[in-house]
């Protein structure tokens, strides 16, 4: 089983955070439905060629965030009780945050960003 998760060395986020984001995105998009069984920590570590401890940390934090649940001896599953909308909301906020940070780096002010957002939402509606 391959998750097709791709990590980037050029990404400034730590690897565990990249893994968390990749998994959250799959859950948010509905590709990994509630109850979906995740690969074991060691399987995913082998697939991604990253240390077991890093994947373990990603799973732990995802568990803390309520995205997944781990049942002793049975593996980790996408949480059934989780509100997919919540995860989507978080995903959206992350994307917004990234956009704002990028804008700041380019020297764009609040108004510039708002104008851009306006433009994009209009494009979408059409």
């Amino acid at each position: 089983m391959s998750t097709q998760i791709i990590l980037s060395q050029a990404d400034s986020r730590p690897i565990y955070a990249q893994i968390m984001d990749e998994i959250s995105r799959r859950v948010a998009l509905g590709d990994w439905a509630p109850g979906y069984r995740l690969p074991s920590i060691r399987e995913l570590a082998a697939e991604l060629k990253v240390s077991v401890i890093t994947v373990k940390r990603a799973y732990l934090e995802l568990e803390r965030a309520g995205v997944i649940v781990t049942r002793q001896g049975r593996g980790s599953f996408v949480s059934e009780s989780m509100d997919v909308d919540d995860v989507r909301q978080e995903e959206l906020e992350r994307a917004m945050e990234q956009a704002v940070r990028l804008g700041e780096a380019m020297g764009l002010g609040h108004d510039d960003l708002a104008a851009l957002l306006e433009q994009y939402t209009r494009n979408d509606r059409r």
Partner: peptide, 15 residues
């Protein structure tokens, strides 16, 4: 290097 790291991680599938 990638091939070797891959093989090392495959070993780690066993606990």
């Amino acid at each position: 290097r990638k091939v070797i790291l891959e093989e090392m991680m495959r070993v780690m599938e066993a606990e």
